[in-house]
Amino acid sequence: MRYTFLLYSEEASWAKMTPAEQQGSLAAFGAYVEALKQAGALVASDWLKPTATATTITLKGGRRIQDGPYADTKEQLGGFFVINAPDLDAAIAWAERCPAAQFGYVEVRPSNIPS
C-alpha cells in the first residue's frame, strides 16, 4: 500500500534556527531517507522552498495564475514523502520517525490508485 506523508510546519521557524541547528535537521532528514531506502519503502520525496515561492494555477472559473500557496495556513506544506507500507500501523511507525513530526505535523494519506 502506498502512503504519502504531507509535512506541515511553520516555515518561519527554519529561518530562526542557527546554522548548526539547520545542519542537524538536514542530517536527521538524511538519515531518515537512508532508513526508508534501506527498508525498500521509499518511493519519492522532496523538500520544498517556502510558500513565498509558490504559484497557484487554476482553470476553474477562468484561467488564473497567482502568487502564493493555495491555502493560507498557520503551518505550511514544506515537503512530502511517498512510501510503501503494509498497513496504516506500519505507515504511522514511519511517520513517527520522520524528523518533521518533532517540529510540525505529518499527515498520512493512503494512495487512491489501486496497487
Binding site: M1, P86, D87, L88, D89, V108, P110, N112
Partner: peptide, 14 residues
C-alpha cells in the same frame, strides 16, 4: 478499508 487500518493485535510496546 481505504487507509488499510490493520486487523491485528498490537505489539507489546504499543
Amino acid at each position: 478499508k481505504a487507509a488499510r487500518i490493520p486487523f491485528a493485535i498490537p505489539d507489546r510496546s504499543e
